[in-house]
């Protein structure tokens, strides 16, 4: 088993936007995550792979500022810090797109797009929403992502899974995210819709964003990823840059032992 930990960024020598060193988190007596190191830089995609219960959720919560880490170090642009709230992480340009997408299904698309960061006009107690402005920006921003909605007033719950995912990504990008953390964006999607989401990930990367892509599917991760962090039972079982690992090796590491044989068989038939 080749186990390589690369600490230097392959694309630039500047400090990565977001880096964790031997990070961990305990909930009381339960160690949900320990000694995990990874980093993501400008225009990079870090894929975090692991099966259910591997610690992916805990990892995201630390990066997103939802839970403070209890071990190790978290650095943004080389500066060590501890997030106090999701707002804190957001202010540093770290946006998280959760599995439930943090959207309110009954609310219109444009209201969801600007939720929590609404544009207002007027002053003092008479501040009110710039409805037209927000509608127009929503339509334009979604257009840039290649999503053409005829009506941004429709409840976001009426969009398809891929579309909703894309709206959430577009929202993060528009609000100046430097790093977008995507929590299993393809987990609930069909093949075609997953492809759409992978395309948006590549698009976000090309626009100079760092992307943290959490998934349990190596076939989704490998084509877009630059770095791969493999988690198992709350700890890292390997951290690789793309040139160091093939998709077969990665799948093997993830599945391990007995499951590997049947999986390899399944893969060969493709």
């Amino acid at each position: 088993m080749s186990h390589t930990t690369s600490s230097a960024s392959p694309t630039s020598s500047a400090p990565p936007i977001l880096e964790v060193r031997d990070i961990g988190k305990s909930y009381g007596a339960i160690r949900a995550l320990h000694t995990v190191s990874a980093s993501v830089g400008v225009g990079e995609v870090l894929c975090v792979l692991g099966d259910n219960g591997a610690g992916k959720s805990t990892f995201i919560k630390i990066l997103a500022g939802a839970h403070a880490h209890t071990e190790g170090e978290l650095l943004s642009y080389g500066q060590s810090l501890t997030f106090t709230s999701p707002r804190h992480a957001l202010d540093l340009g770290i946006a998280t797109v959760y599995q439930d997408l943090a959207v309110v299904p009954l609310m219109p698309v444009w209201r969801n797009f600007f939720l929590g960061s609404e544009i207002t006009t007027g002053f003092g107690p008479f501040r009110f929403l710039d409805v037209k402005g927000m509608r127009d920006i929503t339509k334009a921003e979604l257009g840039k992502m290649g999503i053409d909605l005829r009506d941004v007033d429709q409840p976001i719950g009426t969009l398809s899974g891929g579309e909703r995912q894309s709206v959430a990504i577009a929202r993060a990008v528009y609000f100046g995210a430097k790093v977008v953390i995507l929590d299993e964006p393809t987990a609930a999607l069909g093949v075609k819709q997953s492809g759409v989401v992978l395309k948006y990930i590549a698009q976000a990367r090309d626009r100079g964003l760092g992307v943290v892509f959490i998934t349990h599917n190596p076939h989704h991760a490998y084509p877009v990823g630059d770095r791969f962090l493999l988690l198992k039972r709350g700890t890292s079982i390997g951290s690789f840059v793309k040139s160091e690992i093939s998709i077969e090796e990665m799948t093997g590491l993830m599945a391990g032992g007995a499951e590997l044989a049947s999986l390899a068989h399944e893969l060969q038939r493709r």
Partner: peptide
């Protein structure tokens, strides 16, 4: 509307 529609989402977007 947001806190009533989806409390968790509201927290996540910083409301």
């Amino acid at each position: 509307f947001a806190v009533g529609g989806q409390l968790q989402s509201s927290r996540q977007v910083g409301i």
